[in-house]
Amino acid sequence: MNGMSRIVKKVTQLLVSIIFMYGVYIVTHGHLTPGGGFAGGAIIVGAFALIILAYGSDALKLHKEEAGSSASESLSILMVLILAVIGFFVGGMVFFNNYLPTGVVGELISAGTVPLYNIFIGMEVAAALLTIFIALVIFKEESK
């Protein structure tokens, strides 16, 4: 797959960082506003998908990318599980126990472990969606 026209590439360069930052914002404010890990992760992967579509899969070495994204997917879901298991040991033999101080409602650093879960779920969703997207792109490459 070749890249798109020069205009698209330039606009992509300008937009990608904003989309990425917006995704990060949605993930980190998951416990305060609507959104959270899944929605933010989906927005983050939108940035990557835009790059792949604009520049074409030839310019990027996608086979390597896929291995990396699937590994980081597994790692982030493991982190969620590790957080849950820490909760198991810290407080009362209960998985997903919220063992950090909850802070004040409305502040960014509050709600205990919830933002951490959001961040790792955001990474997980972004990596998983990127893996799916790259896998489908590679399929198309192979079938040519």
Binding site: I132, L136, F139, K140, E142, S143
Partner: peptide, 16 residues
């Protein structure tokens, strides 16, 4: 999303 991705992947494989 997972089911649809699975279905599309299988559909593409069938096309191949």
């Amino acid at each position: 999303l997972a089911t649809n991705a699975m279905l599309l992947a299988i559909a593409i494989r069938i096309y191949k």
